[in-house]
């Protein structure tokens, strides 16, 4: 596995990087011929937004015998952060030509495609990266979904979430967005099934039960919605008053309003 990936080294101004800057400079002074020290220095310069200096360090590392695959990744990462996605893509392509097993890089190429303005290609690479990468993350899956939503492909976005969950697990940060999409697509039973699956992974959660009520409400199943709202309210009320912080107070208010509204609609029908 390639040791250095292409995580965005976003420069949040320079605050906090001075320490790293000083430390990597010292290390480099001790071992000026070690390509790894130059790569580390390049990473820090990249974090600082000093693109030219970072690329110079990469080239020095190359001259000192650094691993061309690792250097290609670092170079691509710097290009991407510096706003040169086409050059980043060229670097990633070169590495992938030598190392087709480096599936994690596909995600970075997807980022490059996105910056180039080719979201279709980005979505393809994101999907491949998630399917083949060693340890995909919820953040990558959400990025894949976002690209597809940007293309207006809600069904594909939903599939992207499912494909992601097949790798990452049925986690709340992916399952709830999938529920939202199912609802948008009018697939209420599918949304409910997702919430049921989520509920099976953890102790009863008032947030998820409330969401279940909202889905039922939207599906026009008022009586069932009211039952879910009541269940969520009971769960909140079961907590001692002191344990109900603002999120619970807000949720309770929301639930009471939803319950009242559902009851009103039920009576008027």
């Amino acid at each position: 596995m390639l040791a250095l990936g292409l995580a965005p080294a976003v420069a949040f101004a320079h605050a906090g990087l001075d320490e790293l800057d000083a430390a990597t400079r010292q290390e480099l002074a001790k071992r000026p011929d070690d390509p790894q020290r130059h790569i580390e220095r390049a990473r820090v310069l990249q974090m600082k937004g000093e693109w030219d200096a970072a690329l110079e360090e990469v080239e020095t590392a190359a001259a000192r015998g650094g691993d061309p695959d690792v250097l290609g990744q670092v170079r691509a990462s710097i290009y991407l952060d510096a706003g040169f996605p086409r050059m980043a893509k060229v670097e990633v392509d070169r590495v992938l030509a030598r190392r087709p097993d480096a599936a994690g890089l596909l995600y970075e190429r997807g980022r490059a495609w996105l910056a180039i303005g080719n979201p279709e290609a980005a979505a393809r690479d994101f999907g491949d990266a998630i399917a083949k990468g060693p340890r995909p993350t919820p953040e990558q899956v959400i990025a894949h979904r976002d690209v597809l939503l940007g293309l207006g492909k809600k069904d594909a976005a939903l599939r992207a979430l499912d494909d992601g969950m097949a790798r990452v697990g049925h986690v709340v940060s992916l399952e709830l967005p999938a529920v939202d999409l199912e609802v948008e697509l009018g697939r209420y039973d599918a949304a409910l099934a997702r919430l049921d699956r989520l509920a099976a992974t953890a102790p009863p959660n008032p947030l998820w039960i409330a969401r279940r009520g909202e889905v039922l409400d939207k599906a026009g199943r008022g009586a069932q919605a009211r039952a879910e709202y009541a269940k969520a309210l009971a769960l909140i009320d079961a907590r001692p008053a002191a344990r109900r912080g603002k999120p619970f107070v807000d949720l309770k208010r929301r639930l009471e309003m939803a319950l009242a509204s559902a009851e009103h609609r039920g009576e008027s029908r």
Binding site: G5, P8, G104, P134, T137, P138, V168, V171
Partner: peptide
């Protein structure tokens, strides 16, 4: 890299990602 969960940090540890030790699963270490 935390975004991709690659590199030595993610290779050497086995943290709970799916609520194996309680709590709600996050899907990431």
């Amino acid at each position: 890299q935390d975004l991709a969960q690659t590199g030595p940090y993610y290779d050497m540890f086995s943290f709970p990602t799916l609520g194996e030790a309680g709590g709600v699963g996050s899907g990431t270490e």
